[in-house]
Design a protein around this nucleic acid. Structure first.
Lengths: 333, 333
DNA sequence: TTGAAAGCGCTAACAA
DNA sequence: TTGTTAGCGCTTTCAA
């Protein structure tokens, strides 16, 4: 910057004015400074500026998700980025892979980089350690899962209601023996989905068979194995509700291996890509990652802009996508 | 930091020493400083430190991809992140959506934030404008597509050879009328895949039928429409080579709509999730995003570490995944 | 309309 | 082992 000032024959402050588009600079001066800056390939250093700048904004936010390679998280990320781009904000993305320690590490790393806000998929059981950051004025919005121990905005999918919708749909097609393939119990949303499954069964007057409830599935290989095992039971299920993307794929694989894909009903939570190309086409409880991301970004920027209204809890509804696999009727019914 | 120093009853430099783990601090002093820092919830400001620090490293890299929501890019991103995490580097991710202007904007935004390196999927025809950044010592590695106008490391998929493999495979099953569903011609890799298709046809002594070569497809709806049109031709293709993920899905949809999925052979470039659940199972030329990302990250960090060896061009081979759809024989042959 | 001086939070260089 | 001084690149404040 000093070099630019020297080349343009002006003071350093005038360069600052031109670069930041501040008023009260003569047109000719502006032009000379611009030319000098271009000639020297000058790029302002945002961080140096922020050190002294009144608002101290880094124009950067941090995003913590399960994995940037997870399709749901990736679409949330894209939606957040769109909102951020409009405001010239850059986005740090970090994958936590359900590791509680990674959550704290990531927050610390971003805090040292002075991000203006966080969008976080909580992994730890308790987020009260974040209060320090909130007190410092850095806003945080939780997505996908509710925070515990702090009172902040959150944008979550209606996991409980979505699960009930799935079970109700299967019951409506005559099923009473509905298996549940659940994700890791330490994930809050997985517990919500299980609760929805159980409560809807109860509403329908169906006593859950513990043999049909399998928890802590997280990948498709284990889902395939478990599904095969369930269907080999003396009294097998007539329908399956799988609580997650990869688990759904694993269940379908098992059904195909056994040649039962047209006999056993299946509804998956979270839509699968190419779900309409598999035979039978896959019925699902679809989430809306685009909306989750957009709303979360809007909340965090509202807070950055000084919104101090009470924490908001936004629920994004799921939608039952009827395609075929979920409408297979119960044989005996 | 001054507050911490005061509370601990030491000088400001001693706090700096403790925070950065520098030697020559008495154990007792270290302990006092640590306690004071914890009490005040002190978090060092990396940017302030970098301003004066000798190496000036921001411990941050920038990643530019087509879209963070694209599965290929998302897996590349995850792989880069893994390497970055080992070195306590944070990653900025930006989606370009094939917009050349977005490429320049993103580079400028990251440059102002003083990233230590870039991993870029080039969108513009010419990257020579980046020379300024390279001269300044900030390394850049291109992925997926080769750079033009600058001599930098690149990690690319063997698009040309992969396309030839696909066509050779179809020819080996007796096909001579092989349609090509190409992506946007302004994308370099799309042109490489088209070239591979044409050259392999030529090697097999097959004159390409212009009616079977459709370019500039980018989503599945248009791919579905085009596929339906091709199969309604008086002299339709007996096999299809689709050059991209979404296009492959669109082609499958059309085949299913027409009830021809077991009659027309299909090989797609880039594997599709659930490709083994669709009937017939989808044969594909699989890319290796994990390897692309890891190698790109290793290159950029090697450069950051001072590697000044000549620019390297790394080709990650594709793999033909044989599943069924690509092995449907040609009826007349 | 312009520029000089001070200082943001930190580290380098050097002295004690 | 510790602290002091200067200065990183910039913006603020205030005077010209």
């Amino acid at each position: 910057m000093r070099d630019v000032a020297q080349l343009a024959g002006v003071g350093i402050k005038t360069v600052s004015r031109v670069v930041n588009g501040e008023p009260n600079v003569a047109a000719g001066t502006t032009e000379r400074v611009r030319r000098a800056a271009a000639e020297l390939h000058y790029e302002p250093d945002m961080h140096a500026g922020n050190l002294r700048r009144a608002d101290g904004r880094s124009h950067t936010i941090g995003l913590l998700v399960s994995s940037v390679a997870n399709p749901f998280a990736a679409h949330v990320h894209r939606a957040i980025e769109r909102v951020a781009a409009e405001r010239d904000y850059a986005v740090f993305a970090t994958s936590l892979e359900e590791d509680p320690a990674a959550e704290r590490r990531a927050i610390a790393a971003l805090s040292r980089r002075r991000v203006d806000g966080y969008v976080v998929t909580p992994v730890q059981d308790d987020q009260s350690y974040l209060r320090v950051h909130l007190d410092r004025g850095t806003p945080l919005v939780c997505i996908d899962r509710e925070p515990a121990g702090i009172d902040v905005d959150s944008v979550v999918t209606s996991n409980y209601d979505g699960a009930r919708d799935a079970v109700r749909h299967l019951v409506a097609h005559g099923h009473r023996r509905i298996a549940f393939l659940g994700d890791l119990e330490r994930i809050l949303t997985a517990r919500h989905r299980r609760a929805g499954y159980l409560d809807e069964l109860a509403s329908a007057g169906i006593a859950p068979d513990p043999a049909l409830v399998v928890l802590d599935l997280h990948d498709d290989a284990s889902a395939t194995a478990v599904t095969r095992h369930l269907l080999a039971l003396p009294n097998p299920p007539t329908a399956i509700f799988s609580s997650q993307n990869l688990v759904t794929l694993g269940a379908i694989r098992a059904l195909q291996q056994l040649g039962l894909e047209y006999d056993i009903a299946l509804v998956g939570f979270d839509d699968v890509e190419a779900g309409d190309l598999v035979k039978p086409r896959v019925s699902a409880i679809a989430q809306d990652p685009d909306r989750v991301g957009r709303l979360a970004a809007e909340r965090v920027f509202a807070r950055i802009d000084g919104d101090v209204s009470p924490a908001r809890r936004i629920v994004v509804p799921t939608q039952l996508v009827v395609r075929g696999s979920g409408e297979i009727p119960c044989p005996g019914a």
